[in-house]
């Protein structure tokens, strides 16, 4: 490994070290997996998307794809658990999406939320709207997903993220069989 590439890693190491200590963690990854897939064995299957796949997902969902890593786990029954993060208003929201073997949404869980505002996205009533939606559904605020008055931005950004993940399932995960 060349020295210059190690230098590139320095900011990442610094970021890891300075990771916010007080973010409210509602669920661990394992808890979220258990909530969606019960006691099924979960196998980590992270995928690095290539440029063409990122572009295809972007076109299908209308949402910019900013990272090449798809943080995916495969459930024993063939379903998928996807971990993702979006910006709410100015802070990160970490959430997970559970998909069944047909790509239908099983559940949406919020793992970490850092803002004082907009935490309403954790309300079960809001998250329930996504259940059973899949590729072909609009998955858009103002269409088949209703927003929350006090959490407009958080709702929009999580909904956009889910639309991007569902497109990633159709284009990348589904062909894996």
């Amino acid at each position: 490994m060349s020295r210059s590439s190690r230098i590139c890693l320095l900011p990442l190491a610094a970021l890891a070290a300075s990771a916010p200590a007080q973010a409210t963690v509602y669920l661990s990854i394992e808890d979220a997996q258990r909530a969606m897939f019960g006691e099924q064995a979960m196998t980590a299957r992270p995928l690095t998307l290539d440029a063409a796949q990122m572009k295809a997902i972007e076109q299908a969902s209308g949402v910019p794809v900013r990272g090449s890593l798809l943080r995916a786990w495969r459930a024993a029954d063939g379903g998928w658990f996807l971990l993702d993060a979006v910006i709410g208003k100015s802070e990160l929201i970490t959430y997970a999406l559970g998909l069944d073997t047909q790509g239908r949404i099983k559940q949406v869980e919020v793992l970490e939320y850092r803002e004082s505002h907009g935490g309403e996205i954790r309300y079960p009533g809001w998250r329930k709207q996504f259940v059973d939606k899949t590729v072909g559904n609009e998955l858009r605020i103002g269409d088949d997903i209703d927003g929350i008055s006090g959490a407009t931005l958080s709702c929009e950004h999580v909904t956009d993220g889910i639309r991007r993940l569902v497109a990633a399932w159709a284009l990348v995960l589904k062909p894996l069989g």
């Binding site: 900011p11 990442l12 970021l15 890891a16 900013r66 990272g67 090449s68 890593l69 993060a85």
Partner: peptide, 8 residues
Amino acid sequence: PTRQDARA
């Protein structure tokens, strides 16, 4: 760490 993390 990933590009996504760096961006975020």
